[in-house]
Design a protein around this nucleic acid. Structure first.
Lengths: 353, 353
DNA sequence: CAACAATTGGCAACCGGTTGACAGAACGCG
DNA sequence: CGCGTTCTGTCAACCGGTTGCCAATTGTTG
């Protein structure tokens, strides 16, 4: 006969497919039913709602299932029920280390609760994002959007379909998880004020970023309180390069302390200032934001306001999973605390000699 | 009579569910068929194999589909075909930045080719890994294992079921993608030799790591060629902390140049040596491995052998997707080149004064 | 214009579980 | 012992596409 070694080919003929299936495909509830001598639907019940079946038959079925190395076919289950034990996570930019921790937190929580994680990125494009979201909606039980770029209305539309949780942004009527920047920023500003700084520059992130606006608000409020002068500088992009580029303006501003929208900006800024011969923190203090991986690789290691991104990811996932199992409120914002991580890049100004 | 409202939240009653479905669930091919005035199977054909249907009816159907905002139900499609346009990626440790690039590469390629990425981690445990792999096998069309910890035999068993591609390890009979360390290492060693170094220490990774063994082999070969003495040092774990801990042994070894199993070790080592007052690279040259994110945040920035991890992820994904579509060979190893990235942490030895 | 080939479209049987409705068995109680 | 009640288990109809097979339609050609 022809050897059914067709493996590599996408399209198998009907017979070959059957063959392959019989060879590989795992047992079905029908096989179990046959072995256990009961009706397939009884098998289904025994496996999905054990209390609905007598202990005796349950045992019988479980044994048969174990013997046949049975595994449910997720599609067959999903078709009538619509549930997949799967959820999607869409991040704005997979290149940005900020999201690593979020992904990590989400994955961990997901596995813990026996869910599988679908990952996609939007490449900062609202359109791509919406497309990815739509696609995932078809497969997943719910969705987590990390720093979404699409409109509030689009998000709400998605949320009407299936549970959605948003990270790093607040959308009315949709459950959100956001770092509460207040505490961390005020700690940072207080620390700087305590070290004698009088003027602080805030290097902002993307103009349309919800988060950047919140951080600037936090800085203003904290500086008000601590009687510091605050100025706002724009960055071209929230990356190491962007940080380098803003160095000139920072020096021109006359500020002796800088707080940046994120750590990448802080790192680039520090590199550039040091290259120009400035000593950090003796001549200028630099404070980043997020405490990303690598923030402590610099010399001096970067002082930064830690956003518990991992917790955000984990929290959002927990939130979503609760929603999926009927627990938890449909909306409302979960705030996680930020805190100052004091390292070497901030401190007292040294008089020039 | 008795109202079966016992479940309440999570489970909807039949009627309510139907209701919800009618409200939200998207159109089916039957709806399209009705609108277009054709048979559902014609709709199915028009959408999945357009050439099988006349241009006229295709247009008719496409319009109807567009009008109804139709989206295929992936489960319904997957049930008979077994195809899901989805593949799994399992990484050994989601905490390790090495994998970020792999994930990134995989995600990008996947999206490009209209596949969805399932992500899981094994937490370095062979058992967890196998469990995750099994679970994903049920849903995904194929699997990518990045630095797998399980046995070769387990991997081959999985590969018999569905296409599997392995990254960072070579498994007989399974397609693999691995960085070819030869070029990068010999460049590094040649550079060090050129700078007058005579003795090189290699800080190894986990004892059972396939990759670590390959790298040590590469170092030995390159040192042989360049007439350098090579010594091998153990690390407790391949992390920044591990790097710190191995600093004592490095100094004791008398080597003036160090090449580490990965960048994290190099960074930790450098931090510790600098803390002890040594100047890098004047007194000792340090070369890392992988060129992870943040490797250039250090002062001096880290010289390192770049493993094109992103390419590995992308390459493995491309490989897998080819396999899935019938192209590509069932086995064989794809090697991607490594190269030296010369930064500030390596260079000429400065005579002590 | 008829005959024949090449397309196109329709029917129906699956894929593998889930679940409401119902029949039969087991059991309690007077 | 009979009757009603509660459990268990079975039946059958879905969920929404896919696809082999055949019939009808269309187009081509002698």
């Amino acid at each position: 006969m022809t050897e059914p070694r067709t493996q590599g080919h996408a399209a198998l003929t009907g017979a070959a497919k059957k063959q392959a299936r019989n060879g590989k495909s795992h047992a079905t509830i029908y096989d179990i039913a046959k072995v256990a001598g009961v009706n397939p639907s009884t098998v289904s019940r025994a496996l999905s709602k054990p209390e609905r079946v007598s202990a005796k038959t349950r045992k019988l079925i479980e044994d048969a299932a174990a013997q046949l190395d049975y595994q449910v076919n997720p599609f067959a289950r999903a078709l009538p029920t619509g549930r997949t034990n799967t959820f999607g996570l869409i991040v704005a930019d997979i290149t940005n280390p900020t999201f690593f921790d979020i992904i990590r937190g989400a994955e961990t929580t997901a596995t813990l609760r026996d869910y599988t994680l679908l990952l996609a990125e939007s490449a900062e494009s609202p359109v791509t994002e919406l497309t990815a979201a739509r696609r995932m909606m078809a497969t997943a039980d719910g969705l987590i959007l990390a720093s979404p770029r699409m409109d509030d209305d689009d998000i709400r539309a998605l949320a009407k379909d299936k549970p959605v949780v948003v990270i790093n942004r607040e959308v009315d009527g949709v459950p959100c998880v956001i770092p509460d920047v207040g505490k961390g920023i005020s700690e940072a500003v207080r620390s700087l004020a305590g070290n004698g700084h009088k003027k602080l520059a805030f290097v902002a992130g993307p103009p349309r970023s919800w988060m950047s606006a919140r951080r600037w608000e936090g800085v203003q409020a904290a500086c008000d309180w601590s009687k510091l002068e605050a100025v706002r500088l724009e960055s071209s992009k929230p990356t190491v390069d962007g940080g380098r580029q803003v160095a000139r303006e920072v020096r021109a501003s006359g500020a002796t302390a800088v707080l940046t929208y994120n750590d990448l900006l802080a790192i680039g800024l520090m590199q550039e200032l040091q290259a120009a011969g400035m000593v950090v923190p003796d001549q200028i203090s630099i404070v980043g934001f997020d405490d990303i991986f690598g923030a402590d690789f610099t010399t001096p290691p970067l002082t930064t306001v830690r956003s518990p991104l991992g917790e955000c990811g984990a929290g959002a996932t927990a939130r979503l999973l609760d929603l999926l199992s009927g627990r938890g409120e449909p909306a409302g914002t979960l705030r996680v605390e930020t805190e100052l991580v004091l390292r070497g890049s901030s401190g007292r100004l040294l008089p020039l000699h």
